[in-house]
Amino acid sequence: MSFWKRFARNRQAVLGMFILALVILMALFAGAFYPDDPFRLAGKPLAPPGTSGFLLGSDSLGRDVASGIAHGAKTSIMIGLVATVAAVFIGVIFGALSGYYGGKIDDALMRVTEMFQTIPSFVFAILLVAIMKPSIESIVIAITVVSWPGVARLVRGEFLALKNREFVQACHTLGMGDIQIMLREILPNCVSPIIVVGSLMVATAILIESGLAFLGLGDPNIMSWGFQIGAGRTMLRSAWWVCTFPGIAILVTVLAINLVGEGLNDALNPRLRERQ
């Protein structure tokens, strides 16, 4: 059965994929629907949804909430993807070297990994952004730094299990070099779990970014969902729409990514496939 057929068997995953596609389209066409800067004062402050030409209302400074959500989608998705790709890259290198060589290299690399893991990840991210000054780069770096250890541990485990398989030993007897064995023989066999973990990491990255922005540690020049919630939180009782709609956007996006991740797991994990 093809990969897509297996993926499509999980209805929830397909739903997640659909929502995610909508969010991505929204991010891509934000500029077309809302050509103006989302920080621009567009009209009356604190207008409820549906009034004064605001689809989802406006905040205390008269900024359009709907425009903010559309432009914020771009920020969230971009940060999620870039931070995840960077974290997977670092994690794979650490995990592969440590699992493949074992011994002292493994000890050294894993102690470093644990050092990162012992600090609560969100607190660590806040610390990093505070030190580096809030900007989009520093946020991506902070998210990468707190999320690569998980990938490293996963990849290390896969490499540990695979390096003693007979097909790897056969490569040794052919005289293949270490780098080639790691990249060509072992890595392709652990792509599936990496994809699954990576997809879930995108969701976590979006959450961390929103959290940072909510605390006022976001990039001040870039609109994001977390920033909107942070800006509206003091008026939650008088102007509920300022916080609520960006909150729903985060909820739906993260949920969609998680559903897709689960679906990928079902479709890519051969053991689960047999169980059905």
């Binding site: 007979e166 030993q169 056969a170 005289g175 392709p188 066999n189």
Partner: peptide, 20 residues
């Protein structure tokens, strides 16, 4: 010298890389 010595393994399912 690898060329001169080659091995056939026990488990036909584990001894071939499934991705190649």
């Amino acid at each position: 010298h690898r060329r001169r010595l080659q091995m056939v393994f026990q488990d036909p399912f584990a001894s071939l890389n499934p991705r190649i």
